[in-house]
Design a protein around this nucleic acid. Sequence first.
DNA 1: GTGAAAGCGCTAACAC
DNA 2: GTGTTAGCGCTTTCAC
Lengths: 344, 344
Amino acid sequence: MNRPTIKTVAAEAGVSTATVSYVLAGRTRGQGSGISNETSRRVHEAAVRLGYRANQAARAIRTGRSNLMMLSLTMLSDPWSLSVSRAVGGAVASAGITPMILADTDWRLAIPRQSADVIFIDDAGRPGDAELLAELSRTNTLVVFSETLEPDGYDVIRSLSGSSLDAAMDHLTAEHTRVACLTPAGSLRTPAPIRYQAYLDGLERAGQPFRPELVATFDGDELNAYQAAVELLSSPEPPTAIYATSDFAAIAAIHAAQRLRLAVPDDVAVVGVGNTIQGEAMAPSLTSTGPVGFFSGLADFLVERAQDPDSPPRILEFPWQLLLRDSTTHHPQDLLYPEREVMK
Amino acid sequence: MNRPTIKTVAAEAGVSTATVSYVLAGRTRGQGSGISNETSRRVHEAAVRLGYRANQAARAIRTGRSNLMMLSLTMLSDPWSLSVSRAVGGAVASAGITPMILADTDWRLAIPRQSADVIFIDDAGRPGDAELLAELSRTNTLVVFSETLEPDGYDVIRSLSGSSLDAAMDHLTAEHTRVACLTPAGSLRTPAPIRYQAYLDGLERAGQPFRPELVATFDGDELNAYQAAVELLSSPEPPTAIYATSDFAAIAAIHAAQRLRLAVPDDVAVVGVGNTIQGEAMAPSLTSTGPVGFFSGLADFLVERAQDPDSPPRILEFPWQLLLRDSTTHHPQDLLYPEREVMK
DNA sequence: GTGAAAGCGCTAACAC
DNA sequence: GTGTTAGCGCTTTCAC
């Protein structure tokens, strides 16, 4: 399967490799001058006849651009990841960029082995990540989603969840005295991640005690979240409300409740975090807090960055809102609790 | 951000580029001879100090191998796609191959622009695909999932659903006289895809009439499937059983039923196709038909093919079984209806 | 044990 | 209008 090269095509068309390169790049050469229609036609014909397709690696080495965008998505099954993929897929279409997903892989190990014009990283929060990212950004164009990092050679995408998480907790504690939390096991570290901290703060604001038995943790994906929720809801004194630190966990909690024949929201109210389309579309629709315009904003920024790698690193912030839906209230209102506007 | 090259490292370590290449490849040079420990140490130190990382494009152009596996997954949100991703992620780990997902994109357009050591294509059935794949396989190593294509320069992965789909329909028609079908809109073409044909055949075998109003179609993903199922189940004379041509559609149908306060399986029984982990884990667990050992078998084969691109194209077939679970029967049995063994 | 050098396929000055 | 040519960063043969 000896692949035809630009040389083969040049020979076949009876022109030089340079001409082939120019013709196939669709460029008119030099200024003022161009390539004759006759030559162009011959080259195209030869290329088609031979089944020629440019070697991307060779092009990349020469131009320094791969026209690749890499999305490192740590948990692909998370609806959040799927939303990112979908939004990016739409945004890149016209830009000649191909988005590739690096799934369920630790970017800390994988990035050094790959390259792309721009790399999006969806989880950077571990100790040491700041240094590692600064180091990697010397040789890669990085866009990092993080609620805590500051730009340092790389861009930071941030969604300001702060007071909307508080609003979510207040929404629950206003009517419930047994509010549980469903969160990844890693959340219990100190200092607590912002989403979990909001749970602790919310209880305190409401003057409610912290009960360890109301904190359910899980490792990994929705199946484990589901099992954790089943256990939580099967306990002797089950919660009447669940604050889940992600939409997918909240969705798993609702499925768990339905499995146990508990009515949502009557027997148990559920709120998520992230405001995903999946939560919005499920039944009952999921009350959640999330950034507005986040996915399309992220996608547009990634495309912009892929095309202009050298402009100074930026920070992009998205305001969050609490969106009340059927999983916490029977009478869906169009009420939003708008966050102060912090878009920049 | 001038990236250090092998040259930079060579200068820093006071050796030649060839030596650097050998040291960093971890190879002992020539036969018998080797690289002195001292030199090796100096090179490694220099590489670390400079933050050197090999340019993959340059390596690819030289060796003809990218160590990349491309998974073209047409509908990423489909649990089937996630299972493929997960299985492959596990299988490649030790082989030094990085799997990249090309999501929600038409491979017919995208493949010519990219390259990888091996490319997996998950939907090839359109007219003209056979020719296009044969053409592409001249310059790519392809593994194609298809129930109809034959190997032709590329490998074919096939799951033999045939009689297990019949078993699924027989399972429904044995107890139901209003069996609906939930399937993508594209299925209605002639000739009918095998999964939809099995519905038609099943009705006929049972001597039941075909009722157009019991065929619900949808475009795209689970949200649309969900809506189609809601409509179907809200109709004046709703079905008492649904044959969905995929697990994700079946899962959407169960959610739709739950939304409408219909009990599964009492008010409506549901079977899926594909036997995904999501269907197995949901509540009620989903009766489905699917290949056994498919995902791990596919993943292993992809890795094998990535490492040995030149052995003759193969066809890999996986037998299907009907797995009875809670979405069609109240007393989950461990009964399997084993397909005749056709594994090769 | 190590270095020199060729060349992978492509692009972009520059020459004519 | 088109051809020549110098590399991009890397691997690998061959010479020392």
